[in-house]
Design a protein around this nucleic acid. Sequence first.
DNA 1: CAATAATTGTTTCGACTCGATACATAAATG
DNA 2: CATTTATGTATCGAGTCGAAACAATTATTG
Lengths: 191, 191
Amino acid sequence: MVSDALANANLLERIGHLSRTEEKIGDLYPAQWAALRYLSQANRFSRTPMALTRYLSTTRGTTSQTLMALERKGYITRKPSKRDKRAVDIDITRKGRSLLENDPILHLVTTIQTALGKDSARLRVQLSLILESLVRANDGRRFGECHTCRHFRRDGGSAYKTPHFCGLLEVGLSDGDSEKICVEQESRPAA
Amino acid sequence: MVSDALANANLLERIGHLSRTEEKIGDLYPAQWAALRYLSQANRFSRTPMALTRYLSTTRGTTSQTLMALERKGYITRKPSKRDKRAVDIDITRKGRSLLENDPILHLVTTIQTALGKDSARLRVQLSLILESLVRANDGRRFGECHTCRHFRRDGGSAYKTPHFCGLLEVGLSDGDSEKICVEQESRPAA
DNA sequence: CAATAATTGTTTCGACTCGATACATAAATG
DNA sequence: CATTTATGTATCGAGTCGAAACAATTATTG
C-alpha cells in the first residue's frame, strides 16, 4: 500500500522534527549535537570536516561554522592533519565526552525502548534499509562500522602489531578502531 | 536491547535530517513545506496558527513568520475567524494545492516503498507507537484523523443535514471532514 | 615534470529557523 | 466586572544552511 509509505514518511518527518527540537535544551544546538555525536562515533580517518560534511549531507561552509562553535565552547580540538596537509584532524575533548553523557537523543532512546521494547530489533532492520536507499539516492556514503567493511581484514594486522588491518588505507586497526564508523566503509558482499 | 533503541534513535535522526535537507529544492523551505502539508491535511477547525504551532511543537512567533512567507508566496490565505475573533482561519489556495503535488516528501515515500514494499504496514505501527509516546512526553496532541476520535459520531449528524457529528465542537461533519486530522482528536477507548 | 583539475577548508553573504519577549486583542474564569 | 488565560503579530539575537569566492594542497593528465 502506497498510503502506508506516505504515512510512514510523515511519521518519520514528524518524529525527526520533534526529537530535533527537543534537543535545544542544553549547551548545544541541534546541528552541533549531531556533529559531536558523529565525532564520538567516527574512527580517526573520519574525524575531518569533509567526512562530517558528507555524513550530514551538508556543505563545507556550514560544517566549518558548526565546528567553530564546538571549538569555541571547548568540546573539540582542531589541528592540521599530517596525512593530508589540506585536512584538519578533529578530536573530542574530555569536556566533550562528558557532555555526551547527557546527549538529549537519549530521550528518544528511552521513548523507543518503552514504546517498542524488544521489537526495536525489527525496527532497526527496516530503518537501516530506508537509510541505505536514501543515502544511495543521494550519492552519499553509509558510514557503517569499520568491521563490516569490505576492506576490513580481521586478525590481518600482524605486520603492524595491531589485531586488524584496513586494505584500503593500508593501516593497522585496533579493536577499538574496528567498532567505529568510517567514511570509507563499503558493504562487504554476502559470503 | 538498549543498543537497538540507540541505533534506532540515530537512524531516525539521520533519516529525518536527510529527508528534511532534501526538501530545500523547490519554492519552499522545510518549515514551510511542513506547514503547507499540515494545512492540507487539517480539518477546518484545525487550520489556525495556534493549531499549527501545537502540531509542529514550536512557538506562535515562529509559526507566524512561516505563515507570512506562505501568504506572500500566494500559497495560503488568512482571514479573521468568525468563531473566535482572536483566531485566524487559514486556507490553501489552488496554487498551494498544485504545489503539493510536487511535495518533496514524495521522494521519501518512494524510497520507503522500494526499500520495504509490503512491510511498510508493520513499520507504520511501530512509528505510530513512538510518536504517541513522544507526543505524550511533550504534553502535546496527536492530531489523529477525525473519525478515530472519541467525540466522533458516525451517522449522527442528521439534525445538521450532515452524515456525521462532532460531540466536542457540536457541529456537523461531512465525509471529507471525518478523514482529516484535527487538533482536538482524542483516542477512542477500545470497544 | 609542468600545467590543469579536483579536493579540502575557511570566510562572507543572504534568507530562513527558532525561542524568547513584549504587545494588543479577545475569550474565559471567578 | 476584574483578573487570568489564550491567540496572534512584531522584533531581537544566535544558529542553520546553501552558495560563492578564495587559498592551499593533492591528484591527474598530457
